[in-house]
Simulated assay, not measured.
Amino acid sequence: MSVYNYKVKYRSGELLSLSEYEGKVLLLVNTASKCGFTPQFAGLEELNQQYGDKGLQILGFPCNQFANQDPGDDETIQNFCQTNYGVSFPVFSRVVVNGKEAHPLFKHLKESARGVFWSKRIKWNFTKFLVDHNGNVVRRYAPRTKPEKLRDDIEKLLAQI
């Protein structure tokens, strides 16, 4: 099963099928606006600017499961990302990434690319999942991994398009 089989919700409430991004390399990130890793938005936007026209699509998914670090509503979160970090990539409606209520997309991501010691659980905000142009999850990155460290892996996948 590929990520293209899933739908996600915009802050407006409308659903978007990830099949809209078919043929692109995707970087899916669970984000938060009040986290020690929040400055990674700048690095994500830098990747977006550098590789967006070459086939990379970054998708942000706010999550409030970790120490209540994204308590605002969807519009507040979107405004924060744009105002403070110039984010131009899509930031969707807030999601749950762990537990029984986890969004099906994140269940799939966690099953496809496990964390340390084969753990499925997402440990914190800014866990990143790299997906190839066929919708296959290629790799999972820890929250501490800065976006610029993903360049080589992104370039390798972009070269396959």
Rank of each mutant, 00 (worst) to 15 (best):
M1E: 12
M1S: 13
S2H: 06
N5S: 13
Y6N: 13
Y6K: 12
K7Y: 06
V8A: 09
Y10E: 13
R11F: 01
S12H: 07
G13F: 15
E14Y: 08
L16F: 09
L16S: 12
L16C: 07
S17E: 13
S17M: 06
L18N: 03
Y21Q: 11
Y21D: 05
Y21M: 11
E22Y: 04
K24R: 13
V25G: 02
L27S: 03
N30Y: 10
S33L: 09
K34F: 04
K34M: 11
C35D: 15
C35G: 07
T38D: 07
T38R: 05
P39V: 00
A42M: 02
G43E: 01
E46S: 14
L47C: 12
L47F: 10
Q49D: 10
Q50T: 15
Q50R: 07
D53E: 13
K54G: 00
G55N: 04
G55Q: 05
Q57P: 11
Q57V: 15
I58F: 15
L59M: 15
F61M: 06
C63H: 12
C63P: 13
N64C: 01
N64V: 05
N64H: 09
N64R: 06
D70R: 07
D70K: 06
P71V: 10
G72S: 04
G72L: 05
N79M: 08
F80E: 04
F80H: 00
F80V: 00
F80Y: 09
F80G: 00
F80P: 01
Q82V: 15
T83L: 15
T83S: 14
Y85V: 15
Y85P: 06
S88E: 15
S88Y: 02
F89D: 05
F92A: 02
R94D: 01
R94V: 00
V96Q: 12
V96C: 10
V97C: 09
N98V: 13
G99A: 13
E101R: 06
A102G: 03
L105S: 03
F106S: 00
L109G: 01
K110E: 09
E111M: 11
S112C: 09
S112E: 07
A113R: 05
R114Q: 12
V116L: 11
F117M: 13
K120W: 14
K120E: 14
W124S: 10
N125P: 05
K128Y: 05
F129L: 07
L130C: 04
L130W: 08
V131H: 04
D132V: 06
H133D: 12
H133V: 12
N134W: 04
N134A: 00
N136P: 00
V137L: 04
A142V: 06
P143H: 03
R144Q: 11
E148T: 09
E148C: 03
R151G: 02
D153E: 14
D153N: 10
E155W: 09
A159M: 04
Q160L: 14
Q160P: 08
